[in-house]
């Protein structure tokens, strides 16, 4: 297992995304400019210039032609992956925190923060094949959540949208009616803000990470809690291995406390847990700041992590020395 250290961002990493083939890695950071890298050797392929604020999130279409990004400059933008050309801009009254394409890439869900007097929303936009036909009109606006929505993702068959955020509650919404179908149990669920949410490869279950130092695995349909993974640090990022029964959990103490203590104290490790047995099976060190983003390559053989330190590391699991139980 060898790490590749990618230095390209000047500010802390916020989000990482592989394309479906696993050969491209998209990275977002607080430095306004998302990057795309070759996943296998860490060479930078290009940048997407145009945002005027920290970029919180991105998603790439199934055929790797379109990229959508959400930024603190109160816009979400559509890009041509290959040319880096900006295709369209969705304007909001608040920072865009989370974006995701639907199955078939015909729709996208975008969340906006509770900023100034605005309530947080999750909005569904139609994504057209030809960018000239693209409009800003929302097909559906989900409101009624207190506190920032940190992630919103599509459920199976685009019938539902799953949201999670600062109010520590995971909710499933009907995309037809915009009504809340299910809510995570208060007792069983997270006790503090949910920072991240990641779906399994077959969308059957999803994993949430929270500042309450746990990550929880849920059934996508019934919203029942399946597993809980307990760590020693606030969790900022989670992902589920598409290949093995593993989950990876990253986090760390608040950035403001980092410099005051020993590097070991921060626990800036990406921790591996056995998905089914809920046991910690290993950890990968390498960051000297909290981990903000974690993502498995779709082949399940490597993963990337991005940290508050502004580095992004690809760990390849070819040897899988720590990983095999």
């Amino acid at each position: 297992m060898r790490p590749i250290l990618m230095k390209g961002h000047e500010r802390p990493l916020t989000f990482l995304r592989y394309n479906r083939d696993g050969d491209l890695l998209f990275s977002c950071a607080k430095d306004h400019t998302p990057n795309v890298w070759f996943a296998d050797n860490g060479d930078r392929l290009g940048t997407y210039r145009g945002h005027n604020g920290a970029v919180w999130t991105c998603d790439v279409s199934r055929d790797s032609t379109r990229l959508i990004t959400g930024s603190a400059d109160q816009t979400a933008k559509l890009w041509d992956v290959q040319t880096g050309q900006e295709l369209f801009t969705f304007r909001f009254d608040a920072p865009a925190r989370s974006v995701e394409f639907s199955i078939g890439d015909g729709l996208a869900v975008i969340t906006t923060d509770n900023f100034m007097d605005n309530v947080p929303t999750a909005q569904v936009k139609r994504i057209t094949e030809d960018p000239d036909d693209q409009s800003e009109e929302s097909l559906l606006v989900i409101t009624g959540i207190k506190g920032r929505i940190n992630r919103a993702v599509w459920g199976p068959l685009n019938r539902t949208i799953i949201t999670a955020g600062e109010d520590a509650t995971v909710r499933i919404w009907d995309t037809e009616t915009g009504k809340c179908l299910k809510e995570s149990d208060k007792e069983q669920g997270h006790q503090k803000a949910i920072s991240s949410l990641s779906k399994s490869a077959d969308w059957s279950h999803f994993l949430t990470g929270s500042l309450d130092k746990t990550a929880k695995l849920w059934d996508t349909r019934t919203m029942t809690l399946i597993k809980t993974y307990v760590t020693e640090r606030p969790v900022n990022a989670v992902d589920i291995s598409p290949l093995l029964d593993h989950v990876v959990i990253g986090g760390g103490q608040d950035a403001m406390n980092v410099t005051m203590t020993d590097r070991r104290a921060g626990k800036f490790e990406a921790k591996f847990f056995h998905k089914i047995l809920q046991e910690e099976i290993g950890g990968v060190k390498g960051h000297f700041g909290p981990i903000n983003a974690l993502v498995f390559n779709p082949d399940g053989r490597s993963f990337s992590s991005g940290g508050e330190d502004g580095y992004k590391t690809v760990f390849s699991e070819a040897a899988s020395s720590i990983i095999v139980v």
């Binding site: 060898r2 050797n41 053989r301 490597s302």
Partner: peptide, 17 residues
Amino acid sequence: EVEEVVDVTEEVVAFDL
């Protein structure tokens, strides 16, 4: 295919360490 790619990765990283 991916497995082969990983082999290449190992060589490239050596000086990054």
